[in-house]
Design a protein around this nucleic acid. Structure first.
Length: 377
DNA sequence: CCCCCCCC
């Protein structure tokens, strides 16, 4: 080829998205298509243009400005996380490939969905965390928020221009059902065992819950499938960083929780997060919610074993706790019943996240179950 | 997409 230096410098703009051989092949095809009306250099520029190269850098937006109606957007983003790509079958029988990465700039983060050859970039290790990318793609509303789709006609390539990431940070108390793109630091307050379950399609899933708090409140995290394993790496008191979580009401008690699925990221952090438990005066407790109280033990019953209608056995012990505002009965279920062996009348006690409801004689009582915690001082 | 709120 003539003008090799020029063609090489044009190729540099798209070298991250196409191999050199394939590029030269496309340039030659373009020359043929144009029946000699354009030279190789022009063809090289046209091919680069088709790949989106000339669009990047023009009309560049910041991530926070991207809306569902943005159409094609050009922006620069720094890679925050890379997820494995996977193959799927199209209706026409061909095999497609799709993969996701999350990028951020100083205004926010967004998920990219890479298709086919672009998804292959993920597998071949061409995309690394911390790298800055020039991106041109089509905006769509996804399950967890906006996503930018990048197919063969769009572009993704290494950027000379760098951007800093300043993750927007959500306060736990501001989290509402349906929110996506949730980034925050939280202190681990409690965690539960990983559970296996069967999906409707017959496959097995795994799920784990972690309770986290920040200075504004606390919320339950739900980690799905391979993300559930993360729970083994952390303990109460650790700080976790969440990137790209999304909030959903769970469908058994309508509490909003943060879900971390295959598009989200959770990792340990060195950051210090303030959390203070908020205790409710016993007199202020109403039925139908979770409460934390602190006070002194003012009554202790014996442990009772019982059988449920379904044949399962369990145990329960009732105790009473008083503070300066009132006195309330607590039912300690399961393992919590053994707490009666560790307390005496007047023991100082804190009970975290007990469920209030009307019990014996229509009086409000607190149920201390496997989501609750008892601290004997 | 998964899970309690049960006893007397």
């Amino acid at each position: 080829m003539e003008n090799m230096d020029e063609i090489n410098s044009i190729y540099e703009k798209v070298s991250k998205v196409i191999s050199r051989d394939e590029y030269i092949e496309r340039v030659n095809e373009k020359v043929e298509q144009m029946s000699g009306l354009c030279d190789e250099k022009t063809a090289a520029m046209l091919v680069a243009h088709d790949l989106g190269a000339s669009d990047a850098g023009q009309n560049t937006v910041k991530i926070a400005e991207i809306t569902p109606d943005s159409g094609i957007v050009n922006f620069i983003g720094k890679v925050i996380s890379v997820f494995d790509s996977r193959e799927f079958k199209r209706n026409d029988g061909t095999t497609g490939k799709v993969g996701n990465i999350v990028v951020g700039d100083e205004t926010g983060t967004i998920r990219l969905t890479l298709w086919d050859d672009r998804a292959e970039l993920i597998n071949s290790g061409n995309i690394e965390i911390g790298q800055c990318l020039k991106i041109s793609g089509y905006v769509k509303e996804g399950y967890t928020g906006l996503e930018v789709n990048i197919g063969d006609n769009n572009m993704i390539s290494e950027s000379d221009e760098m951007v800093d990431i300043k993750l927007s940070s959500t306060s736990i108390s501001d989290i509402k059902d349906g929110m996506g793109d949730i980034n925050l630091y939280g202190k681990v307050l409690d965690k539960w065992d990983i559970r296996e379950f069967n999906r409707r399609d017959g496959s097995k899933g795994r799920v784990c819950n972690i309770l986290i708090g920040d200075s504004s409140g606390k919320i339950r995290l739900t980690l799905w499938d391979e993300k559930a394993d993360f729970a083994e790496k952390i303990k109460a008191g650790d700080t976790v960083e969440i990137i790209n979580g999304y909030a959903r009401e769970n469908n058994f008690n309508q509490e909003v929780e943060i879900q971390i699925g295959s598009y989200g990221l959770i990792k340990k952090s060195d950051r210090n997060v303030e959390f203070r438990e908020s205790f409710t005066p016993i007199a202020d407790i109403v039925a139908g919610d979770l409460f934390s109280i602190k006070g002194h033990v003012s009554g202790i019953d014996e442990i009772k074993e019982f059988s449920r209608q379904d044949g399962t056995q369990d145990m329960v012990a009732n105790i009473y706790v008083s503070d300066e505002t009132g006195r309330i009965r607590l039912a300690l279920w399961g393992e919590h019943a053994n707490t009666v062996n560790d307390i005496d009348i007047d023991s100082r006690i804190e009970v975290i996240d007990a469920y209030s409801k009307y019990g014996l004689k229509d009086e409000i009582e607190l149920n201390v179950g496997n989501r609750s915690k008892i601290i004997v001082m």
